Simulated assay, not measured.
Amino acid sequence: MFFLGDRLEFPPVEAANEDGLLAVGGDLSPERLLLAYKSGIFPWFNEDALILWWSPDPRMVLFPNKIKISKSMRKVLRNDQFRLTQNTCFEEVLDNCAKVQRKGQEGTWITPKMKLAYLDLFEKGFAKSFEVWEGDVLVGGLYGVDLGHVFCGESMFSAKPNASKFAFIKMVQECEENGYKLIDCQVHTEHLESLGAEEISRDFFMKILQDQLYTGQ
Rank of each mutant, 00 (worst) to 15 (best):
A15Q: 14
A16Q: 02
A16H: 03
N17V: 04
N17A: 10
N17D: 15
N17E: 14
E18Y: 13
D19H: 11
G20Y: 00
G20V: 00
L21M: 11
L21Y: 01
L21G: 02
L21P: 00
L21H: 02
L22K: 05
L22Y: 09
L22S: 06
L22W: 07
L22C: 08
L22I: 06
A23L: 08
A23R: 00
V24Y: 03
V24C: 11
V24M: 12
G25V: 06
G25T: 08
G25L: 09
G26A: 12
G26I: 07
G26C: 12
D27P: 11
D27Y: 13
D27I: 08
D27F: 11
L28I: 11
L28Q: 13
S29L: 13
S29N: 14
S29K: 10
S29E: 14
P30G: 12
P30Q: 12
P30N: 13
E31A: 15
E31H: 10
E31R: 14
R32S: 06
L33W: 07
L33K: 09
L34F: 10
L34S: 13
L34C: 11
L34W: 10
L35S: 10
L35I: 09
L35W: 07
A36L: 08
A36R: 02
A36Y: 05
A36T: 06
Y37F: 15
K38D: 09
K38R: 15
K38A: 13
S39Y: 04
S39M: 11
S39W: 05
S39H: 07
S39E: 09
S39I: 07
S39F: 05
G40H: 03
G40P: 03
G40F: 01
G40K: 00
G40C: 04
I41D: 00
I41M: 03
P43Y: 10
P43W: 06
P43C: 10
P43H: 09
P43G: 09
W44D: 02
F45L: 11
F45I: 08
F45E: 05
F45W: 13
F45V: 06
N46T: 11
E47L: 14
E47C: 13
E47Y: 13
E47T: 08
D48C: 12
A49W: 12
A49Q: 15
A49C: 15
A49V: 05
A49D: 15
L50Q: 15
I51S: 10
I51Q: 07
I51N: 10
I51M: 13
I51K: 06
L52D: 01
L52S: 11
W53R: 02
W53M: 03
W53F: 07
W53D: 01
W53H: 05
W54S: 02
W54L: 02
W54F: 07
W54I: 00
S55I: 02
S55H: 03
S55K: 04
P56S: 07
P56F: 02
D57C: 09
D57T: 06
P58S: 03
P58V: 01
P58E: 01
R59P: 00
R59Y: 00
R59S: 00
